[in-house]
């Protein structure tokens, strides 16, 4: 088998909203040595019977295929889609970023926040909490820029993802 280069992949699952379902998925990843870079979960249907789980993981294409096949075996999992392999998709996350500074760094932080279209959702005389939504890359670079400007705390949601166009997780 030819060496395939490792990369990251966004995998979206629809799972029955039952006790232990998340533990089952997370346990499968840890038990088989797969990586979870980020994970998001929330109910997505009207009755709250199903949740959507988005997992960002890394591995060779063969690893990712194996991960998908293993996750598909789980009883409460009704749908698994590798959005990265299935074509164009939107993957976004949200971060809350706290910056404590004064003087020039504080002004600079606000300037950069405006350039990134981050919103200041909490402001005190010495601090800002910025809310920023976007791709993982965008959040990463914003956080890097904030680091010398008084960054003290970060809270990120992990990736929510969906495929582009009229296709859905059910139709893919």
């Amino acid at each position: 088998m030819q060496q395939e280069t490792p990369g990251s992949a966004v995998i979206s699952l629809l799972v029955d909203n039952e006790s232990g379902a998340l533990a089952r998925i997370v346990g499968l990843f840890s038990g088989r040595g797969y990586n979870i870079q980020s994970l998001t979960v929330a109910p997505v249907d009207e009755l709250g019977m199903q949740s959507r789980v988005n997992i960002v993981t890394t591995g060779t294409p063969a690893d990712i295929r194996q991960i998908k096949a293993q996750v598909e075996r789980l009883v409460p999992v009704s749908r698994v889609v590798n959005l990265t392999a299935e074509g164009p998709h939107v993957a976004r996350e949200m971060a809350l970023i706290k910056v404590v500074s004064s003087g020039e760094p504080r002004t600079e932080a606000l300037r950069i926040a405006q350039a990134f279209r981050a919103r200041a959702v909490d402001t005190t005389a010495s601090s800002f909490v910025f809310e920023l939504t976007g791709s993982t890359d965008k959040l990463d670079s914003f956080i890097e820029l904030m680091r010398p400007l008084g960054l003290v705390e970060v809270s990120r949601t992990g990736v929510a993802a969906i495929c582009r166009g009229p296709q859905t997780i059910q139709s893919l």
Binding site: N17, E18, S19, A21, A42, M49
Partner: peptide
């Protein structure tokens, strides 16, 4: 909202 995946579904 009901707590997903942990509650008494």
């Amino acid at each position: 909202r009901p707590s997903p995946l942990m509650g008494d579904q």
